[in-house]
């Protein structure tokens, strides 16, 4: 670590980013006093370069770009353990959602691409079919991530057990789902929603 004097002010804190995260998550970033209970209970901390409590600290210090560039937020499993145990009622799992949205909207400055790819395919399935289509999810993921052999041995077994359906279920009311997607896009274009 470089020894450098640090000045904390509303500018260095980048209060507008903090406020945006607070609006999206409906919880306070500023209330965290770094007790570390969130990281102690986090099952995914071992896979992260910044454990959960440090994510909040970086946010408090205006260093949100470091968070978005890293992979930690994409390794959060949304297990809600942090939010459950926080003594200050900081809903950290929702802060993670808000940070992922910022990263997502900035079109992925993060190194972690597999989790983002899986999310994208999942959402595409909802828009195209109204329900999940697991076969497409797995197949397209393998092709797009270049892991053609991933879980190859599992596939035939799952099919024989009736667990992997060749054909998709489709909702009869697809126009309705498309309207939900497009109304949200419209609201965002007009600046009526984050």
């Amino acid at each position: 670590m470089k020894k450098k004097k640090m000045i904390i002010s509303s500018q260095t804190m980048e209060l507008d980013v903090v406020r945006k995260v607070e609006a999206l998550s409906g919880t306070s970033v500023r209330r965290c006093f770094q007790c570390g209970k969130c990281s102690a209970g986090c099952p995914m901390a071992t896979f992260m370069e910044h454990p959960p409590n440090r994510i909040v600290r970086l946010l408090q210090l205006g260093q949100w770009q470091r968070i978005l560039a890293g992979r930690s937020i994409w390794y959060c499993a949304s297990c809600e353990t942090c939010s459950t145990r926080c003594p200050n009622k900081v809903h950290l799992a929702s802060i993670m959602d808000a940070l992922r949205k910022l990263s997502w909207d900035a079109e992925g400055p993060s190194k972690e691409s597999y989790v983002q790819l899986a999310n994208r395919l999942f959402l595409e399935n909802i828009r195209s079919y109204g329900r999940q289509y697991e076969m497409r999810l797995a197949a397209v993921f393998n092709v797009k991530s270049g892991q053609f052999l991933k879980d190859l041995m599992l596939g035939p077994k799952l099919i024989s057990k009736g667990k992997l359906k060749m054909f998709h279920q489709k909702n009869r009311n697809m126009a309705e789902i498309e309207k939900i997607f497009s109304r949200i896009e419209e609201m965002r274009k007009k600046g009526e929603a984050l």
């Binding site: 808000a98 992922r100 949205k101 997502w104 959402l123």
Partner: peptide, 25 residues
């Protein structure tokens, strides 16, 4: 009748408004 996907984890992970809207529907 005609239920939709709730959006599960991927939807709220990157787009809470979408997740809430799918569930409200």
């Amino acid at each position: 009748p005609d239920w939709f996907c709730c959006g599960a984890t991927p939807a709220h992970n990157v787009d809470e408004l979408l997740s809430l809207s799918l569930c409200a529907k």
